[in-house]
């Protein structure tokens, strides 16, 4: 699951930093914007089978790779 999410993030951001620094603030560093967020949600839906409606997406809860992984794992459980 973890590798899968990191791979999605690498694809989205075009950066390897998301694999090396799992606590990087994706929004703060300008790696992800609203457009990429939507892509992320769609990828999570198709690849990981977690359904996150846009209104459940609170930026502060999804701002780092680690937070995204934790969030997806909690939604999966």
């Amino acid at each position: 699951m973890k590798e899968q999410i990191i791979e999605i993030l690498q694809d989205l951001t075009g950066s390897d930093e998301v694999a090396t620094n799992l606590d990087i603030n994706l929004f703060g560093a300008g790696l992800i914007d609203s457009m990429a967020t939507v892509q992320l949600l769609l990828e999570l839906q198709t690849q990981c089978g977690v359904d996150v409606p846009v209104s459940e997406f609170e930026r502060s809860e999804w701002e780092t790779p680690n937070k995204i992984i934790a969030k997806v794992e909690s939604l999966k459980a």
């Binding site: 609203s34 457009m35 967020t37 939507v38 892509q39 949600l41 769609l42 846009v54 209104s55 997406f57």
Partner: peptide
Amino acid sequence: FRDYIYMRLVFFIMKKKLIKSR
């Protein structure tokens, strides 16, 4: 506007695959 219009519209277009280019 970002959360209720932009993201929803983008989500809709991408999910329905109405337009290809991001």
